[in-house]
Design a protein around this nucleic acid. Structure first.
Lengths: 337, 337
DNA sequence: TTGTATGCGTTATCAC
DNA sequence: GTGATAACGCATACAA
């Protein structure tokens, strides 16, 4: 692999000059510029990004932490970030935090040790305190799907309460009045917010929230199966089921079908997130769209604007959920119009 | 950020000694070692991976190229690689090639410029010649889902012909004799191999392969819809449909249902790949398992063994497809036993 | 066992 | 406009 030194030798100029034409930041006469470019081409020269980074203290790369490298959710996020950064001549370095504190912390340290110019983090386990302290350090960061008051300008988040509200309202408007709910784990803020939105929608229709029609799951498919089983045990009839994410909705549909309910004729089902597979479900799942890809794009824009000084990007922090109408919701039998 | 120099100062030793305790490769007296460790802790010292890489010409990171950062297929691959490397104290750097030559080449150059110790590539557009030439360069590489004779020892691949054979045999064994096939794009080797396996299975049952029952798709869902439409036009009856991947199978099921066929009673359907969503389909899709996660793991093992000299790993290059029995296949009506 | 000195491939600050 | 030369933070051959 050719170095800048060999290029300078072949071109008959100094290191500094070669560096100048590479970075195109200082004035170089057209003649020497051509000589250098020719030498670079001849030697098939590629700058060593590591050395550049060490010398300039900038790496042109931004570190990204997601919970998992697989899964439709993070896939969209990574793709969005990658696309935007690449278009701007920057690069993303992805790591996984696996929703646990140790891995998340390790991943962040790795990213920092690689001289990332900025960090885009989707963290679940790390505390607010840790993140606030980190944000005060040398490396700029933004948070996706998390809101921390102290660093609000670096947060990108969804209005989960609105989402929960929209989901439940969708079935209310179809005439449903007996509505079951499978929640996410309530230690998570987004699960609490979604539930709150659900309750708000019920209240608007003067309906009471019934504990017997609510199950706290873990955002995994099995919770859908368990939730339906548990709720059915209560012997309290319901014509619609709202789930706090699509995985649980999928499990719920499976169990409902097993119990000889037809979807949506016997029970309407709504999910949340609009992950990739939701349109493969049968019936195609009505759900709430979580614009995670756009949030990734926006986080990338923030970095481009604030770190790489590309002022053309407009930033907004709050994202709105939207209902994705598909086939898993209809009017209740007893109340069809 | 503290440097090795400040640590050496605080500990009252030389740079070299600090470096030694970090790398744990030369003998250091326990006493000085403790002093150094204490100083490191006190300064909250983190080694600068960039500087390490420049000085040692090793980065402890391996570059990974996938076609897309999203999608269930590559997600599993990335996760597998990440897990194995992380366990060994190495790291993966992921980039996307988007199935086109320019992006794939750019991505590879990026990875090389980052001093990756090795490359794990899932390429689609780059030519054999390019890859062979690349393999002769300084940075070791392995190929996933591709076989090139000249560098066979660096290739990890599935027996696609066997897979195609298994898929078709599955319906043959159920008694089907009129079998339609939706192929992948035949310029791709794997699509050709899968078709070949299909034909082999037919031949074993003394059945002729009929062009009228075969459609060449593009490995996308729409091809499933189009394929079914096209084949139905031929007015040639069939009781089973084998698709060269799951996306197309999903599209096919959708169109079949739209045309009032019940799956699997009227038409049995088989997919290929066993991507994540195949078990969310209704009915749950019978398909051929493509062990992409394991292939990623194996590629990581190859790198660990050959580049990082961890001899404990056993390597094998050829992966066998397996039938994943689910609900989309049954015996044909006309021939139920 | 420990320290000194040099180099890794750049960038950047000086001079000229 | 161009060329020396000193960083950047660390690894390592060689001395001691």
């Amino acid at each position: 692999m050719a170095t800048i030194y060999q290029v300078s030798e072949l071109a008959g100029v100094s290191l500094a000059t070669v560096s100048r034409v590479m970075n195109n930041n200082a004035r170089v006469s057209d003649k020497t510029k051509q000589k250098v470019l020719k030498a670079m081409a001849e030697l098939d020269y590629r700058p060593n990004a590591i050395a550049q980074s060490l010398a300039s203290n900038r790496s042109n790369s931004v570190g990204v932490l997601v919970s998992e490298l697989h899964g439709p959710f993070f896939g969209m996020m990574m793709s969005g970030i990658d696309l935007e950064l690449r278009n701007a001549g920057k690069h993303a370095i992805f790591t996984a935090g696996h929703s646990n504190e140790t891995d998340e912390q390790d991943a962040i340290e790795f990213l920092i040790s690689r001289n990332c110019d900025a960090l885009i983090l989707h963290v679940e386990a790390l505390s607010n305190e840790y993140l606030i302290k980190l944000a005060q350090g040398n490396v700029p960061l933004v948070l996706i799907n998390r809101y921390i008051d102290e660093i609000a300008d670096q947060c990108f988040y969804l209005n989960n309460e609105d989402g929960g509200y929209l989901a439940t309202k969708a079935v209310l408007e179809q005439g449903h009045r007996q509505i079951a709910y499978i929640s996410g784990p309530l230690w998570k803020q987004d699960a609490r917010d979604r539930l709150k939105g659900h309750q708000k929608a019920l209240a608007e229709y003067h309906l009471n929230f019934a504990d017997t029609l609510c199950y706290e799951g873990a955002y995994i498919e099995q919770s859908g199966l368990d939730g339906v089983t548990e709720i059915l045990k209560q012997q309290q009839p319901f014509t619609a089921l709202v789930c706090a994410n699509d995985e649980m909705a999928s499990g719920a549909i499976e169990m409902l079908r097993e119990q000889h309910f037809t979807i949506p004729q016997d029970v309407s089902v709504v999910g949340f997130d609009n992950v990739n597979f939701s349109r493969y479900l049968f019936p195609k799942l009505t759900t709430i769209n979580f614009p995670i890809g756009e949030m990734g794009v926006m986080a990338a824009h923030w970095v481009l604007r604030h770190i790489y000084r590309q002022e053309q990007y407009q930033i907004n922090h709050l994202f709105m959920p939207q209902l994705a109408w598909r086939d898993s919701v209809t009017t209740p039998k007893s109340n069809s119009r």
